[in-house]
Design a protein around this nucleic acid. Sequence first.
RNA 1: UGCCCAGUAGCUCAGCGGUAGAGCAGGUGACUGUUAAUCACUUGGUCGCUGGUUCGAUCCCAGCCUGGGCAGCCA
Length: 462
Amino acid sequence: MLQTTSVKEALASASPREDFLVRGWVRTRRDAKTFSFLELNDGSCLKNLQVIADAALPNYAEIQRLTTGASVSVRGQLVPSQGQGQKWEVKAAAVEIIGTADATYPLQKKGHTPEFLREIAHLRPRSNLFGCVFRVRSRLAFAVHQFFQERGFAYVHTPIITGSDCEGAGELFRVTTLDLKNPPRREDGEIDSAKDFFARPTYLTVSGQLEAEAFACALSKVYTFGPTFRAENSNTSRHASEFWMIEPEMAFCDLRGNMGLAEEFVKYLIRDVRTHCAEDLELFAKFVDKGLLERLDFVLDRPFQRVSYTEAVELLTQSGHKFEYPVEYGTNLQSEHERYLTEQHFKCPTTVYNYPKEIKPFYMRLNDDDRTVTAMDVLVPGIGEIIGGSQREERLDVLQTSMARHHLDPKDYGWYLDLRRYGTVPHAGFGMGFERMLMFVTGVSNIRDVIPFARTPGNAAF
RNA sequence: UGCCCAGUAGCUCAGCGGUAGAGCAGGUGACUGUUAAUCACUUGGUCGCUGGUUCGAUCCCAGCCUGGGCAGCCA
């Protein structure tokens, strides 16, 4: 049987080809006097392959009824195109119609809004924009692994079902097999989780960090890359209930090393997509974000800005810029503050580090000033926080004090404390939102448009 | 969850206190190595839902639903 050639391979062909097979979906059809032009797309690349279907074909009447969305298999010759705009085209010897698409097919050859396409999530990857998004997503995921594998990091699969809530990381989805209508109850009337599947309350993970720490304190350099779940009622363009997160964790590493890795990582990903997804990025630059390529290149060209939280607060206070919310030491930076720093003041990715301990989670390492912890946030123009991380508290007594201050029961963190009891070591890591990185790299401004089937509050239809 | 904006044909949108229009898509025909082809004709709407005001509501008001933007939570 004749092997299928992808549209991508066909368009990149160095020479004409006899007896050649392509399969895909019709994007549009144009009739000429004695033949019909079919624009064939198979998702292997943005471009379509032009097929010449001659009127002499036995099923020409059916071919002339082909509409946008139909699937076909085309056998023929790959020949130089007589027309402008493409190097190669297919002179069809046979066009087999596999599946028709009637007039109700919602995708048209005109452009659609992303909002409309979200309502047909099962069909939107057939659009130019989403085809590009998901090819880039695939490449970006590959680049993530490549980056860490090249540097000797081990890929760790941390659990998706977890009994720990990684304090401070948000609301959790409960995982249970109990009968919701009639759950077993204890004598005090509370639901008896001891009778649940895992004999304890369990949740979908909000972070693999704590588990990654255990593996970093064994394999030295590790990373996770997997789905993450947050049950927050967040309705913004940059939050999803299910998203993918990358969490490197390094033993014998401090905050400085952590910031260095984060910066290197971001640049690596940009460079990789820039070279391997050039055609897709051009579509984004044309239709989504005119300044995309300049901005990506700008980021590659210079070091990230680094400012301590204290410096950032001073800088914002003295900026003379009117903010809706006041800038005050000891409170979290508001989105508008972060945006000012990265978009207006520095105009480049900015790493803010050493935050007051009061506003950060228990596991972050306390600085010698006793006021700040080694937190770091990487802010990026247009999106805001893309990475959040820290050096971890490796000193058992300091960690215990911190947990007490956060009203956490040490009994719930026994194994985590063990890591400090036995061969503790300075270590650090961060979490990168994969979709946020994808948004940055594509210019697509809504996280729902960079996830194949987005889960957000009130929405899991597909 | 809060604040703001929107909902009119399959899609994008215009319009108006007297029950609606364009472009594209679909259909028919013409033309053509075309490129989101072109030209002519044409089908298509309980104007988001429920109430209220009014002689009369798609238009004004209220509530609800859906979508979007921003904020909080964070990645």
